[in-house]
């Protein structure tokens, strides 16, 4: 059981949830994720751990409502309610060391999983430059938290309603072209954004890690549903990743594989009876 201790809407259709999960909070490291199955008719869905408090035994997740299951687990449960199942921490933790200067790039709700990684890099003595982006001002997430763990924070909005107008790759590219010292880049966000970050850093040969959001079922390495091509090899994102060398990832294939259940996902009542249509 996983009790929802706090739930708040942080931007349109994006919820921040604090979950009581002492066994996970005790062990989790930046970069790892959990799988939630809220009730027997629902499905298993992966979410990155965006924050954790080992003493209180809690983890924090940011969940965007994008389909029936994310809507169900966010909107049909309130603080005080419990999801039936949560398992974790899963996946390999982010590589933790003092690289020198690290650029942490977060797009949309990808800012949340970047946060604990940026914090850990800061604690390890890295110079942390964070670039966070969103479509518009209302969707900018966790700006203050990111500022608190960064030496420098650049905010971008696609429409220019706040901060720099344009994509997260713009300031990154400018930085690299100016010859600023960048030793390591980590990017988490929509696949297109991660691909574009990879393309931006590749000519400068700066190691770039991306956290891949593949389709998953068990999350423990037993099914291979999350497989991705990395350097031409089959890797399972749930046990070999979710972080990989961005310059080796086959992003085109990843994008195709994310469409595997497009038809079923559009069936409006693929909701485990939780949706109004079956009632």
């Amino acid at each position: 059981m996983a009790k929802i201790l706090d739930k708040k809407l942080v931007s349109p259709a994006v919820y921040e949830l604090v979950i009581e999960a002492p066994l996970i909070a005790r062990k989790c490291k930046p970069g790892q994720f959990v799988i939630v199955l809220s009730d027997p008719e629902s499905e298993r869905v992966p979410f990155t751990i965006a924050d954790f408090d080992r003493e209180k035994g809690t983890i924090t997740m940011i969940i965007q409502v994008v389909g029936n299951t994310s809507r169900h687990i966010c909107e049909d449960y309130e603080a005080g309610d419990e999801w039936d199942n949560i398992v974790g921490p899963l996946g390999q933790p982010s590589e933790m060391k003092n690289f020198g200067t690290v650029v942490c790039v977060g797009g949309g709700i990808g800012v949340a999983p970047v946060y604990p990684i940026a914090r850990a890099y800061k604690e390890l003595g890295n110079k942390v430059i964070s670039i966070i982006g969103a479509r518009n001002k209302d969707l900018v997430l966790w700006e203050e938290r990111m500022r608190a763990v960064s030496d420098e924070l650049i905010v971008c909005t696609d429409d220019g309603s706040y901060g720099h107008k344009g994509f997260v790759t713009d300031p990154l590219k400018a930085m690299l072209e100016k010859g600023e010292k960048v030793d390591y880049v980590i990017a988490i966000g929509p696949v297109i954004m991660m691909r574009n970050v990879a393309r931006t850093t590749e000519p400068f040969k700066v190691f770039t890690a991306v956290s891949l959001n593949t389709i998953m079922v068990d999350g423990t390495g037993m099914c291979g549903g999350c497989r991705v091509l990395v350097g031409g090899e089959n890797k399972f994102a749930c046990v070999d990743g979710p972080e990989f060398d961005a310059h080796k990832v086959d992003f085109a294939n990843l994008m195709e594989r994310q469409k595997m259940y497009k038809t079923q996902e559009s069936v409006e009542w693929g909701c485990g009876g939780a949706c109004k249509c079956l009632k």
């Binding site: 499905e43 259940y261 909701c271």
Partner: peptide, 10 residues
């Protein structure tokens, strides 16, 4: 039993 159970299969 999809869509009664939420997990799809191709």
């Amino acid at each position: 039993t999809f869509p009664r159970a939420a997990t799809p299969v191709f």
